[in-house]
């Protein structure tokens, strides 16, 4: 299936869309750039693969990463040749596009709910209950950080891959990515923090909270920032390439905070791509564009410079759960709660 994007005044976007449906819901999507494949982590424990250059139904392959279990999180592997996934079988799996699977970690009777891979490929981290495990870029164990006051509900590396942030009840814990025994640096804020991200300039750590707020800390002085007004939890967070803008889900628009200077608190955010509640956001890796997935299955694209937006495709009937760009910015990968899935190719 292929279509042309609908153009709104002043905006011309051409793309080919490949859309299809899996039996099982899409939990997360990722791009294995070196291998040229899109990966779809499915609730049934498998990872479905499609090559970017021929994303047709007959090229789809299914690799069972978590037999008889649910896959709970997915990221591209550090070398870009496959995927790292966690499941409710308590296993962290590395699955290459060639179909080879290996177990990187196992935490019996726990769920591995979060996985993060450093941008520079230098490390992998996972969360299982209160435990955060750190592996190097080849998947060898480096350290285990257990000192969290509650289950870790969000995990991210800093841009250089040297530090980790773990979100939990009462705030976040910051860890250095090394084997040495160390105390966690705690940044406290009451309530349950359910997602975390580190700004590309390294200055801010931001979290989503159970109370439908975005929270942030300026690391230089641990100053708190509080950004409220979301009708739902702003759990999908994505930074613009230049590190200035933080796009967030959780409202009927993509709420985009300007994080230059002292930070976004007290500033008015940009509002892009109005529609049903935004459930996933992904900033384009090169341009000032933000893709958004919505609760009704719609995918939109907004432009930061003039706050314009267009509808791209209706992925399915249910919420878009995950969006990811290929590193070159040519392909947008999307997955939905109802198993709807797609690759949008902008390279024309």
């Amino acid at each position: 299936m292929s279509t042309m994007g609908k153009a709104s005044p002043g905006t011309q976007v051409g793309f080919k869309a490949y859309l299809w449906q899996f039996q099982s819901g899409v939990v997360a999507v990722a791009s294995a750039d070196s291998a040229g494949h899109a990966g779809f982590g499915l609730g049934d424990g498998s990872i479905a693969l499609r090559p970017f250059d021929t994303p047709d139904a007959e090229t789809t392959r299914r690799l069972i990463a978590h037999p008889d279990s649910a896959l709970l999180c997915l990221a591209a592997s550090p070398d870009g040749k496959g995927f790292v996934s966690g499941g409710d079988d308590g296993r962290l799996m590395l699955t290459t596009v060639d179909g080879e699977g290996s177990e990187l970690a196992s935490v019996p009777r726990k769920w591995i709910e979060h996985v993060a891979v450093a941008d520079n490929g230098g490390g992998i981290a996972y969360a299982a209950g209160k435990r955060v495990g750190l592996l190097d870029g080849e998947g060898r164990p480096v350290a285990i950080f257990e000192d969290h006051p509650s289950t870790v509900a969000g995990l991210a590396f800093n841009p250089k891959g040297k530090r980790l942030v773990a979100a939990h009840y009462g705030g976040v814990s910051l860890w250095w990515c090394k084997a040495d025994a160390q105390p966690a640096k705690r940044l406290n804020w009451k309530g349950s923090h359910i997602a975390a991200t580190w700004s590309p300039d390294g200055k801010f750590v931001m979290t989503a909270t159970q109370e439908n707020e975005l929270h942030g800390w300026r690391l230089a002085d641990s100053a708190d920032m509080r950004m409220s007004g979301y009708p739902t939890k702003p759990r999908s967070l994505s930074w613009s390439k230049d590190g200035r803008w933080l796009a967030t889900s959780g409202a009927e628009v993509v709420v985009v905070w300007d994080c230059k200077g002292k930070g976004p608190m007290g500033t008015a955010p940009l509002e892009l791509s109005r529609g049903a509640i935004v459930t996933a956001v992904a900033c384009h890796p090169r341009h000032g564009l933000i893709a958004s997935g919505h609760a009704d299955g719609q995918i939109r694209m907004g432009r930061i410079s003039d706050e314009s937006s267009i509808e791209l495709e209706k992925l399915g009937a249910a919420s878009v759960t995950s969006l990811a760009w290929s590193r070159d910015g040519r392909y947008l990968i999307a997955g939905g709660e109802d198993g709807s899935a797609g690759i949008l190719d902008f390279g024309m």
């Binding site: 939990v27 609730g43 649910a70 289950t151 009840y169 349950s192 159970q210």
Partner: peptide
Amino acid sequence: FEMNNGCICCTVRGDLIRIIEGLFKRK
């Protein structure tokens, strides 16, 4: 967890929220 909304009786089971969401990934 106490909800951070100023009400001390508004406590929830944070683990249940996560588990139920996780279960529905494979309903």
